[in-house]
Computed example of a mutant assay.
Amino acid sequence: MSGPNSQYDPVEVTPLKPEEVEAARDAALAAIAGAGDLEELKRVRLEHAGDRSPLALANREIGALPPQARKEAGQRVGQARGAVNQALAARQAVLEREHEERMLVEETVDVTLPVARSPRGARHPLTTGAEMIADIFVSMGWEVAEGPVVEAEWLNFDALNLGPDHPARTMQDTFWVEPAEDHIVLRTQTSPVQARTMLTRKPPIYVVCPGRVFRTDEYDATHSPMFHQVEGIVIDEGITLAHLKGTLDHFAEAMFGEGIVTRFRPSYFPFTEPSAEVDMRCFVCRGAEGAVESCRTCRGEGWIEWGGCGVVNPRVLVACGVDPERYTGFAFGMGIDRSLMFRTGATDLRDFFEGDVRFSSSFGTEI
């Protein structure tokens, strides 16, 4: 059996010949220098420094050499591969820098040019209006109460002294929830919240109740089957009609400006006695001589109808578990939608419900 060929001449292994290694190195360096972008450099890397590149194949041949020939061949191939890798790294850095500079130029955005931006939304004026009204009363030390819009018939009518034969209990004004024997309605006013408050709290009570209400009205410029009310109730010892007048004067002034006052006209509501219609001084002409006759807002009256009010009927107090011999109180109610139409100059109630963001945006974030 023959032994290893210790006289094997490495020069005879073609890939390891000095001129072949130098040729492969020079070809790789030329290809690297000629790469015009990162994608082309990637192809050059695979071709000249990958596993199937000439220098990689030459490196594999070193193991077949005799021990005394491997050192020289390894140094030769290693130096060539090192030069190629250094050139690749240097060219990579140059091309990346050129790519970033090109991106800065090609992808520059001129922020001074007009653009078609998607418009931002806006909070609905009824939402901000209700919050503003609530803030007025919270600043006076009152609380804000809420209740369900689907309400028991007893709370919506009976607890408020609206007997079974009252016209408001007919299908003409009220949305009834089927089946009728469940005695459930869509609340026709926010007064049930007042009843719930008296049933669950002990006096003194100072509560304001904004919210949605429902009635079978036609949908037109001044009416809607769904609208918004704000009602307030006070139950305490020694409450008189004078407290009611002072409260509404402050409310009107906070809503419509300094100097706006209210007046009462006798009226009838089942849940208050005595009862009154509330008018407020016209916020446009302010009742001034020479301006009232031509004022289109109050139509020459100097006053604008605003809402209803009165002293809480003792029957309502008894129904809600409050001692009428000890406590008295007052209640009032206004339409939030109507108040905002006065305040903003809106002429069509339907604008508040059509969902046009252009209408809401015109009010900004506050009213």
Results as ranks from 00 to 15, higher is better:
G3L: 14
G3R: 09
V11Q: 15
L16C: 11
E19S: 11
E19I: 00
A24Q: 08
A31P: 09
D37V: 00
L38Y: 07
E40C: 10
E40H: 06
V44N: 05
E47T: 07
A49F: 04
G50L: 06
G50Q: 09
R52D: 15
P54H: 07
A56V: 05
N59H: 09
R60Y: 09
E61M: 01
L65M: 04
A69G: 09
A69C: 06
K71L: 13
Q75K: 14
R76M: 08
G82N: 10
V84Q: 01
R91M: 06
L95I: 00
E96L: 10
R97F: 02
H99F: 13
E100D: 14
L104E: 14
D110K: 08
V111R: 10
V111I: 13
P114G: 11
A116L: 14
G121S: 12
R123T: 02
A130G: 08
E131L: 05
M132R: 06
D135Y: 01
M140V: 01
E143V: 02
A145L: 01
E146Q: 10
E151P: 02
D158W: 02
D158C: 07
G163T: 01
G163K: 00
T174G: 12
F175R: 02
E178V: 00
L186N: 05
L186F: 09
R187A: 07
P192G: 06
L199Y: 03
R201L: 04
P203W: 07
Y206V: 06
P210D: 13
G211E: 01
G211C: 02
A221H: 12
A221N: 13
S224E: 09
V230H: 00
E237A: 11
K245G: 04
K245T: 06
T247A: 05
T247I: 06
A254R: 01
M255C: 13
R263P: 05
F264T: 15
F264D: 14
S267A: 15
Y268N: 11
P270I: 02
E273L: 03
E273T: 04
E273M: 03
A276K: 01
R286D: 03
E289R: 14
G290K: 04
A291F: 12
V292I: 12
E293I: 05
S294E: 14
C295G: 10
C295A: 12
R296P: 08
C298H: 07
G300W: 08
I304H: 01
G307T: 06
R315G: 12
D323S: 12
E325W: 09
Y327P: 00
M334S: 13
M334V: 14
S339E: 13
A346Q: 14
T347L: 14
D348S: 07
F352Y: 10
E354Q: 13
F359Q: 08
S360E: 13
S361L: 08
S362K: 13
S362W: 06
T365Q: 13
